[in-house]
Write a protein that binds this DNA or RNA. Structure first.
Length: 932
RNA sequence: GCUCAGAUGGUGGAACUGGUAGACACGCAGGACUUAAAAUCCUGUUCCCGUUAAAGGAGUGCGGGUUCGAUUCCCGCUCUGAGUACCA
């Protein structure tokens, strides 16, 4: 029979499901291998052709590892809490659980059709109570731990309390809130339980704090920094504003250094690591306290301003100080005569949106407070300004301005006519600041004549001696806000008693998401959970925020190890066996969100001895984004400027006045419009007329995002119906390197389909009867076979799936030319191809007489280099590096003999034209080059 | 602005450690089969000159360099894409 992909694929997908072919074993002598995909959010739109790209690659890898004798864990699940389902619920009143369930069913159907080797027995859904029970449980562990800097790891709060009881706060070196108090053991004992809890909250790894948050009024929720892009929400594109709110936070900053160091130990794409490094934003410098000039009205709160600088060596070049308009001392520092100016500036800053502020980056603005500080090293009076180029959220919200070395300070100084003092003898500051570290210091008191390194050390030492400064490391990364004022997320397992948060009892987990009448905030502005009737802890009210989207995805890879455990998030044995993810494939858009939070939670879980590896994902690959590729038709515009119902082919639009219109890519093939389908597409085009070129209507092309409104969405279901899953799998790989972004283009899928038919044909005679022989393979057949055995092995190990597909085509072309129908050769070939095109291979495997379902665990054929040995090589002979001819020469000849052989050749002599080559380079087995 | 990635035929791409640039596939052109079409098969297909063939020349974004030899290494530039954004 001809290649009937529909029957074959359905049959094997059913077989795999019925027999749980891909169930990973928990107890086995085989080495483990964990291949993970970033689990999808099940959106209503279903999968488009770009989504499965990474899944196909990981599936090929997983199948290959099984053939190589590994016990492979290759699971799949759903990140099923999220905003779109909730937005839909608000519009329609449908419970998000219902729509989510329906969307998951669609996803599952689509995934099954592609023939993935997932172990579905381990499926997880973050919105399922059996799952989020453990997300809540991990939250409780974070609540019950603090970060001990001396031990450089998390420790239990109980231990901290013990320490407080014995020694008070002395000797505690914690990552904690800034306003922790110091007390003796007796003072601790004297505190009321509530006061003690209040103090402990400042240490917990998840804690409540009034903080400035990204508030999105349209979504009615706060957003994490990585969910905000250019002042707008990433989902939906709504404006985001800054607002102060009491919020749950995660003390990720405690792990900043370890998150940074860990990057050097994992095999991730360099750009991704770089993104995380930038996000963490470590800078090494010093903090310096500038005493406030006593002659001014001194603020009651403190008598100095603290700045952070990376160039403390330039301190003698300081000519002014700039603090953020939001700085807490602004009001107190403003002198009466400057008050009007300062107030006006603050109002102006507040009015500016985030966007304006960025667009305005080049214009200098600011205002003088009327107060001064004293430079602690030379006792100069230094004026204090406010300006919005200093950010309240970074460092201390204050900078020492060195206009000779920093361009922003330089522009500011020019604008306000402030002095610019050069501090290095190599500095050229005639037109702009010069941030050099070269040269020797001048105008700099005791560091004059020194070089950068010793100057920095000397300044830090002096500041330390004065008690006015110290070396300091600063991180850009902030603690992550961990609450959303939304319904469709994990409830926080906390209730409030006398204004203080308390964990619910572990035995009450999971804290179920209650029913509500509407998915909107309450009239008083509380989150939707405030609507839940009778939802109340006996001791007090529950927390009404839910957890953010990244909560459930920050540990899910552990749940797959032991997905049905109802006593632990995963058993010790399962974690000891599976340990970590060996290969993780997913998009780079999660660089500073999911991938950072996951590393953070993993490190925490490691600290409290629940998991065994410091890093969760050993190797990570980013698959490229699949962009859309839109097609256009060109509507003719008549003299009055109105659109007509006539369409001009793309090659002719220069001669007419036209306007482009998107046309459904599914009715265009190789840029040729199917005119009948176009007329049927929409009623208005029923009588459309066309100006053709060469009898065809050619469409225009543009690369855009894949979206319904652009009619460029290609659905995998359609392609599978037409060509089958095996063709789709191979074509997605054939498209190009996995990591490269590219527009989807269905042109060319025919080639892959033809290849599979040709492969099928090898096993059949002219009338499609299955025919293979038991004869001994020929040398040529074995050579083709072993070439592909080696090639696929090498390609998969380096994630070069596209080159494997080409090589398969070459192998099949060769074997077809050889008229190979040899059982031994074909059977090995089936195994090699099975990772890419599993359905057709299963079918042929059984036809060859093997047991159904055994192919997935067959052994990958062993490569034998002996079959590839050649005794002759067609040496390219070049003159001055330009290839002129090929000469067949025995590989047993040595360089000298090859040179003689080549020079004796008549054609070579003709090229040389009687001249003697200056030099002959012979690389054995590679090339002969003559220099004349 | 900064950081990173990339640029190869009409198209997607290949060339793994510096050694025959354009594999494989699409498209296109021509042919075979057919009453015809589809499907299938065969041949050709980087560009220029020539054209029956041969022979020749140019060529991997641009300009230099190292080398017997560079798509590959080095320096400078242009463009495209991604990330980031007054980070002190």
């Amino acid at each position: 029979m001809d290649y009937q992909f529909k029957d074959i694929e359905q049959k094997w997908q059913q077989f795999w499901a019925d027999n749980q072919t891909f169930k990973a074993e928990d107890k086995t002598d085989k080495p483990k291998y964990y291949v993970l995909d970033m689990f999808p959010y099940p959106s209503g739109a279903g999968l488009h052709v770009g989504h499965p790209l990474g899944y196909i690659a990981s599936d090929i890898f997983a199948r290959y590892k099984r053939l190589k004798g590994f016990n492979v864990l290759h699971p799949m699940g759903y990140d099923s809490f999220g905003l779109p389902a909730e937005q839909y619920a608000i519009q329609t009143g449908q419970h998000p659980a219902v729509t989510t369930e329906a969307n998951i069913a669609t996803y599952r159907r689509q995934l099954d059709q592609i023939g993935f080797s997932f172990d579905w027995s381990r499926e997880v859904r973050t919105s399922s109570p059996d799952y989020y029970k453990w997300t809540q449980w991990i939250f409780m562990q974070l609540f019950n731990n603090w970060y001990n800097k001396d031990a450089d790891k998390a420790q239990s709060i109980a231990k901290l309390v013990e320490h407080f009881e014995k020694n008070g706060s002395a000797g505690v070196n914690a990552v904690a809130d800034e306003e922790i108090s110091s007390f003796t053991a007796d003072e601790w004992e004297a505190k009321s339980p509530n006061e003690q809890q209040q103090e402990l909250l400042k240490y917990r790894l998840t804690y409540l704090r009034e903080s400035t948050v990204n508030w999105c009024p349209a979504l009615g929720t706060v957003l994490a920094n990585d969910e905000v892009k250019d002042g707008f929400s990433e989902r939906g594109g709504y404006p985001v504003e800054q607002k102060k709110m009491m919020q749950w936070s995660m003390r990720i900053t405690a792990y900043a250094e370890r998150l940074l160091q860990g990057l050097d130990k994992i095999d991730w794409p360099e750009p991704l690591k770089e993104m995380q490094r930038n996000w963490i934003g470590k800078s090494t410098g010093a903090s310096v306290k500038f005493p406030i000039d006593a002659q001014n009205s001194k603020p009651a709160t403190q008598n100095y301003i603290e700045v952070f600088t990376t160039r403390v060596d330039t301190i003698f070049g300081v000519t002014f100080l700039v603090i953020a308009p939001e700085h807490e001392l602004v009001a107190e520092l403003t002198s009466p005569d400057q008050k009007a100016g300062i107030d006006a500036y603050i109002i102006q800053t507040k009015k500016k949106s985030e966007l304006d502020r960025m667009a305005d980056a080049k214009t200098v603005s600011g205002a003088f407070t009327g107060s001064y500080v004293i430079n602690p090293l030379n006792n100069e009076k230094v004026p204090i300004y406010i300006a919005d180029y200093v950010l309240a959220g970074y460092g201390t919200g204050a900078v020492m301005a060195v206009p000779s070395g920093d361009q922003r300070d330089f522009l500011f100084a020019r604008h306000f006519s402030l002095p610019v003092i050069p501090i290095l003898d190599t500095q050229d500051i005639t037109v702009e600041a010069d941030p050099t570290k070269e040269g020797r210091y001048i105008n700099s008191d005791f560091i004059n004549g020194l070089a950068y390194k010793e100057a920095t050390a000397a300044v830090v030492a002096k500041l330390e001696a004065l008690g006015l400064g110290k070396a300091k490391v600063n991180f850009r990364m902030r603690d992550a806000i961990f609450g959303r004022q939304r319904y469709w997320g994990e409830p926080v397992p906390v209730y409030f008693k006398e204004g203080l948060p308390h964990l619910i009892s572990e035995s009450d987990l999971p804290l179920l998401l209650p029913e509500v009448d509407k998915y909107l905030p309450t009239e008083s502005g509380e989150p939707p959970l405030g609507r839940a009737e009778g939802w109340k802890h006996p001791e007090g009210d529950y927390e009404l925020s839910t957890m953010p989207g990244w909560a459930g995805s920050s540990w899910y890879w552990y749940r797959y190890m032991d997905a049905h455990n109802d006593r632990e998030f995963a058993s010790k044995e399962a974690i000891a066996y599976w340990k970590d993810v060996d290969l993780y494939i997913g998009g780079s858009e999660h660089a500073t969100g999911h991938l950072l939070y996951s590393r953070f939670w993993n490190k925490f879980l490691k600290d409290i001895d629940l998991v065994v590896e410091e890093e969760p994902f050993k190797k990570l690959i980013n698959q490229g984004m699949i962009q859309g590729r839109s097609n256009f038709v060109y509507r003719l515009i008549d003299e009055e400027g109105r659109g007509t119902n006539t369409f001009v082919s793309h090659g002719l639009i220069g001669r007419y006045k036209t306007s482009p219109l998107h046309v459904d890519v599914n009715i265009v093939e190789n840029e040729v419009l199917n005119i009948n389908k176009f007329k049927a597409w929409r009623e208005e085009y029923q009588d459309a007329e066309f100006i053709l070129e060469n009898g065809k209507y050619i469409c225009g092309v543009e690369v855009e995002k894949m979206s319904k409104s652009k009619f460029n969405v290609v659905n995998p279901d359609d392609l599978i119906a037409r060509y089958g899953a095996d063709t789709l799998r191979m074509y997605e790989m054939f498209l190009g390197p996995l990591e490269q972004s590219k527009p989807w283009n269905t042109n060319g899928i025919e080639g892959v389909f033809k290849f599979l038919r040709k492969f099928w044909r090898l096993f059949h005679n002219d009338v499609w009867e299955f025919t293979v022989t038991g004869a001994e393979p020929t040398k040529a057949e074995l050579k083709s076979l072993h070439k592909i055995i080696r090639k696929v092995e090498e390609d998969i190990e380096r994630f070069s799936f596209n080159t494997s597909v080409s090589s398969f085509m070459i192998a099949i072309n060769e074997l077809t030319d050889l008229k190979c129908n040899n059982r031994k050769v074909l059977q090995d070939l089936v195994v090699v191809l099975s990772a890419y095109a599993p359905h057709i291979c299963e079918e042929l495997w059984v036809m060859l007489g093997n047991g159904a379902g055994t192919l997935s665990y067959a052994a990958y054929p062993k490569f034998n280099p002996a079959y590839l040995v050649e005794d002759e090589f067609a040496y390219p002979v070049s003159i001055n590096g330009k290839t002129k001819m090929n000469l067949n020469i025995s590989l047993s000849l040595e360089s000298k003999e090859i040179e003689e052989f080549v020079l004796a050749n008549a054609d070579v002599q003709r090229y040389l034209d009687g001249k003697q080559p200056k030099k002959v380079i012979v690389v054995k087995g590679r090339i002969v080059n003559m220099v004349v």
